[in-house]
Design a protein around this nucleic acid. Structure first.
Lengths: 209, 209
DNA sequence: TAAATCGCCGAACAATCGTTCGGCAACGGT
DNA sequence: ACCGTTGCCGAACGATTGTTCGGCGATTTA
C-alpha cells in the first residue's frame, strides 16, 4: 500500500506527457555522473536512472542500448566544447589574432579541467560506443582542431610570423595542450591545474617567431 | 574420471616447486592481455588465470588482491619503458646530444605504440591500484622525464641553443609527445602510427633555436 | 463511456567480476 | 613410512552489470 503512494508521488514529481524532456534529463544526469565521479566506469544505466529518478528499464524507451546513450553523451559534449571555444573566441576583439588563439586554447583547458569524466570518455570511446576501427577518425574532434587551424591562419594573415605552416602549428598546439591536460588528469585531480594555462601559453609562444 | 587425467596432465605441464617462476608468468600474461586487447578492462583475475593456465584462486597465492597485481604490472612496465629509453640513449654516439634526445623520445613512442594497454593503464591507474589522491605524483614517471631533462641539459652543455630553459624544454617535448601518442591511441589503432615520429621530430626542432 | 495507446515500473535473467573456503596432491623433514 | 607444509584447484558467494518482459496506470481516441 505505501508502495502505491510512493509511486503516485513520484509520478507527480515526473509528470508524463513532457515528450522530449526526459531524454535531455537523462543526458544531463549522465553528464553529471561523469563530472562528479570522473571515470567512464561511473556511466552505468542504473546509475543514470537513479540520478534521474526513474527505473533502469525506462532508459531503454529513449536509447536503444548503452552504446547509443554513450554516443549521445559524447556528441552532446563535443557540441558543448565547441560552443565554449567559439564563445571564448568571440569574447576577444577580432583583430587580436593571437589573443583569439589563446582564448580558444584556454577554453579547451578549462573544459577539460571541469569535465574530467567527459574528457576520458571522448578518448578511447571505441569500446563503449561500439564503433569499430577503420571508421572516420573521431568525427566530432575534427571541427574543433579546424577552429584552431582557422585561428592560426588568421594570425598568419595578420602578419604574425610562424615557425611552422599554420595548420601544423595549430595541430602542434592542440596536441601539446591535449597532452598537458591528459597528464593532469592522470594525476590526482585538483592540484597543478593552475600550471596548465602558463604551460599552454609557453607552448603557443613557441610556434611564433 | 577424465577430470583426474586432465588435472594430472596440467600438473605435469606446470610442475610445482618452480618457486618464483609462476609469479613472473602471471605478470607476463597480464602484460600480454593488456597488449592484445588494449584496454585496462581486459585485465581481470579470471582472464590472467586463463592465460597462464591456472585457476583464478591461484592468483591470490602470489598477489594479495587485484590492486596489488595492477600495481606490480604498472611497476614492471615503467621499468621496461625506462630500460627501452636508456637502451636507445646508449645506441647513439655520446657526443650527439640532440640525437640522444630524439632516440629517447622515439623509444618512448615505440613503446607506447606497441603497448597500448600498458599506456592506458599508466594513466588513470588511481582507481585500479587503490592509491588515493594526494600522494606523490605518479612516482615511476618522474625518472623518465628526468632522463629527458638530462638529455636536454646535455644539449645545452654542448652549445645547442634552446628557446626554453632545458627543464622546461624537456617537459614541453615530453608532454607534447605524450599528447600525440594519446591521440593516436584514442583513434583506431594501427593507422597513423607512421606520422608520430615525424611529429615529435618537428616538436623537438621547435624547442631549438 | 469503452477501448486503444503510451510511458513507466518491478522483477527477473544471464553474464561477469573479485574473492573466499575446504580439500587434495606432491614435496621435505624426521 | 609417517606427517606437516606448500601450492594449487573446484566450487561457491555476493555484488554489479546490461537487458528483457509482463503488467499497470494515465492519457487519448472513438
Amino acid at each position: 500500500m505505501p508502495d502505491e503512494v510512493d509511486l503516485t508521488t513520484r509520478r507527480v514529481r515526473n509528470p508524463w506527457g513532457q515528450g522530449e524532456r526526459l531524454r535531455t534529463d537523462i543526458l544531463d544526469a549522465a553528464v553529471g555522473l561523469l563530472s562528479e565521479l570522473g571515470g567512464e566506469e561511473a556511466l552505468t544505466i542504473r546509475g543514470v536512472a537513479r540520478a534521474v529518478g526513474i527505473a533502469p528499464a525506462s532508459i531503454y524507451q529513449h536509447f536503444a542500448d548503452k552504446a547509443a546513450l554513450v554516443r549521445a553523451v559524447v556528441e552532446y559534449d563535443y557540441e558543448r566544447l565547441s560552443a565554449v571555444m567559439r564563445e571564448a573566441d568571440e569574447s576577444v576583439e577580432p583583430d587580436d589574432a593571437v589573443g583569439r588563439v589563446r582564448a580558444q586554447i584556454h577554453a579547451y583547458c578549462r573544459f577539460a579541467i571541469a569535465n574530467p569524466g567527459h574528457y576520458r570518455l571522448m578518448l578511447g570511446n571505441r569500446r563503449l560506443t561500439g564503433q569499430e576501427p577503420g571508421t572516420r577518425p573521431r568525427g566530432p574532434l575534427l571541427p574543433i582542431v579546424e577552429a584552431v587551424i582557422a585561428a592560426f591562419e588568421r594570425c598568419e594573415r595578420a602578419g604574425k610570423r610562424l615557425r611552422l605552416p599554420s595548420e601544423r602549428a595549430a595541430v602542434m598546439v592542440f596536441v601539446g595542450t591535449h597532452g598537458r591536460v591528459a597528464l593532469y588528469h592522470s594525476d590526482r585531480q585538483g592540484n597543478g591545474a593552475d600550471r596548465i594555462l602558463p604551460f599552454v601559453d609557453e607552448l603557443i609562444s613557441l610556434v611564433f617567431d
